[in-house]
Design a binder for these strands. Sequence first.
DNA 1: CCATAATGTATATACTACTTTACATTTTGT
DNA 2: ACAAAATGTAAAGTAGTATATACATTATGG
Lengths: 88, 88
Amino acid sequence: MGKTPISNRIRVLRAEHGDISQSDLADRIGVTRQTIAAIEKGKYAPSLEAAFRIAAVFGVSFDKVFQYQREADAAFLKRQKTPVKKDG
Amino acid sequence: MGKTPISNRIRVLRAEHGDISQSDLADRIGVTRQTIAAIEKGKYAPSLEAAFRIAAVFGVSFDKVFQYQREADAAFLKRQKTPVKKDG
DNA sequence: CCATAATGTATATACTACTTTACATTTTGT
DNA sequence: ACAAAATGTAAAGTAGTATATACATTATGG
């Protein structure tokens, strides 16, 4: 899909949780160090699975790690102005 | 990564929100009908971006749509028993 | 009943996440 | 200052997510 409108707080979470290194985090979630580096730098967004694993490692909810920038998602806003109402 | 330990409630959300079709949902989030079908059937997990867009279409929080089955993620559990403590 | 919409599924193709290897630069501790 | 750890980054290849086209089966409504 398009350029990612998703931000993350991985770097600060690493700092808060005993200064765990990119390498350590990578090992814990089962990816390489380069993958963590790329995600942190916003080169690309992680897979859903990797994303959930990261949140699990820190023991925090998903949204404490990843934030969807709806306003930054121009391609989406063009199609979708308001949510679909429950039974609307 | 491995076989997806992620479940979703897309089908029920489509039903609850005015019986929106796979096709409609696909158009709204900017993917094809086949992609929605594949995700619903668990053939593969969506990208983070597609996942966030789906939640946005229904106007619900992320976790109302996608659930991470930690216990079903054997490859992860093998590495990671407990979360990293905040400053531990 | 019949037409149309909705869904299931498959193949080939494209794009994106991730790996491996490798090396350079920066940070940290002593 | 120096060594070791941590981080940046790049190129080439693998794997997983999404597309386009196509056709079959299952609802749904008139």
